[in-house]
Design a protein around this nucleic acid. Structure first.
Lengths: 103, 103
DNA sequence: TATACATATGAATAGAATTTCATACAAGTA
DNA sequence: TACTTGTATGAAATTCTATTCATATGTATA
């Protein structure tokens, strides 16, 4: 089936590790090994995940000596995350029973 | 691994059929069979997809006789799609080579 | 209540994405 | 140039997700 922009984009974000990385990069730009340590995941996993995020311009990289420093492209991501936060709050207050989001 | 709100939400959207359905519901609310015809997909696939979308409150359903009419919760989804459109435009103008989004 | 139409559901299978691990590459330093 | 450190990559193995299809449920109507 045809892969739309949306599908590519959402698939990229639909992954716990990549979300973790995004959260970690919200704070500040970091190298691969820094990220790897901080979130306690293997270097190669982190590299794969970063490559994926980069392929959608969700992060960008800058070489600095031996290290590659990744930073978050905040313009798109932060507002999206905010919208989801609001969504979750609206639909998953104390009363929510059915919604998967707050299980 | 822990499933965050974000992960659940994005996973739900990371699917071509569900995106198709969302697009179709932008226009107006529709029944399952209407959707099924319109997007030329099997009824049971559409039902499964709708159940998934509903579990995150992305769509809601209203019974109307034998039919169940699904409508899009536009408040969250439309602005997210717009952000992605802008993102794609910004990063994938005519010059874009590497980005998966515009391949 | 028997029938038809609309939708939902469960479970097996098929398909896709992730993890893992060995290894390659790249940049700096002795 | 050999060595070390940091990062990327490929491919097999694993895990996750979607599709399929048979069937169940739910709603109306003859």
């Amino acid at each position: 089936m045809y892969k739309s922009t949306y599908h590519i984009f959402f698939s990229n974000l639909a992954n716990p590790l990549r979300i973790k990385i995004i959260s970690c990069l919200k704070e500040k730009a970091r190298s691969v090994s820094e990220l790897s340590q901080k979130i306690e995941e293997e270097q190669s996993k982190v590299s794969h995940a970063l490559a994926s995020l980069k392929s959608c311009n969700i992060v960008e990289a800058e070489q600095k000596g031996k290290q590659r420093i990744y930073s978050l492209n905040k313009k798109t991501i932060l507002p999206i995350l905010k919208l989801i936060d609001n969504h979750a709050q609206t639909f998953c207050g104390s009363k929510c029973v059915s919604c998967e989001i707050c299980v």
